[in-house]
Computed example of a mutant assay.
Amino acid sequence: MSHTEPRSGESENALAGVELRMAADPTQLSIVRAVAADIAMRQDFDLDSIEDLKLAVDEACSTLISLATTDAVLSARFIVVDGAVQVFTEVGSERSAPPDRDSFGWRVLSALVDSVTTWVAPRADAFEVHIDLVKRSLGTVDA
C-alpha cells in the first residue's frame, strides 16, 4: 500500500488517499473490497451505501482483470473528498477500447455509484484501461 496526495484542484480537506497495487487476478478482489468497505465505514456511509461501494469496486476491478495483459498489475486508488469516496482503477491491457458500456456489468456498476467513467491511455508497450467512480454518502450534497 502506498499513500498518495490529492490531485491538484481537489479540496484542501481531502483525506490522503490509499493505493493498492496487486496482481490482476480474481483472487485479489477480496482485498480491494475490504479496503473499500473500511473507507466507506470511516466516512459514516450507511450499510446499503457501504455494500454498494464494495460491489461497484468489485465490478470495476473484475472488468479490468478480464482486460488485463498477462502479469499485469491492477491499481486501485481511493481518495475521500467532501464525504465522497473517489476510486481510480487501472490495469495494463492490449485492448485500445474501453469496457463495453452496454454490458450488464456496466449497467450494474452505473446503478451502484453516483458517477462512473472509463477511458484508455496509450503506453509505450500497450494501453492502460481506467475505470473511475464516485460514491457519495446519503448526507453528501453536491456543491
Rank of each mutant, 00 (worst) to 15 (best):
S2G: 14
S2I: 15
P6I: 03
R7C: 06
R7F: 15
R7W: 12
E12G: 06
E19D: 07
L20S: 11
R21C: 07
M22L: 14
M22H: 00
A23Y: 03
Q28Y: 00
S30R: 14
S30F: 09
I31L: 14
I31V: 12
I31P: 02
V32D: 11
A36N: 05
D38A: 06
I39S: 00
M41N: 12
R42W: 02
F45Y: 15
L47S: 11
D48A: 12
D48Q: 13
S49R: 09
S49E: 15
I50C: 14
I50Y: 09
I50F: 03
E51G: 11
E51F: 05
D52A: 13
K54E: 15
L55V: 12
A56G: 06
D58I: 00
A60H: 10
C61M: 04
T63A: 01
T63P: 00
L64Y: 05
L64D: 08
I65M: 01
S66V: 01
T70S: 11
D71L: 11
D71M: 07
L74W: 03
S75W: 02
R77P: 07
I79D: 15
I79K: 13
V80F: 01
D82F: 03
G83R: 00
A84N: 09
V85D: 10
Q86F: 13
F88H: 09
T89V: 01
E90A: 14
S96T: 08
P98L: 00
P99T: 05
P99R: 01
D102A: 03
F104M: 04
V108K: 12
S110L: 02
L112W: 03
D114T: 13
S115W: 10
T117G: 07
T118C: 13
W119M: 12
V120S: 10
P122I: 10
R123T: 15
A124S: 14
A124F: 13
D125I: 08
A126E: 02
A126P: 02
A126L: 04
F127D: 04
F127M: 01
E128P: 06
E128F: 00
E128V: 13
V129S: 05
V129Y: 00
L133R: 09
K135D: 01
S137T: 02
S137A: 15
L138M: 10
V141L: 06
D142E: 08
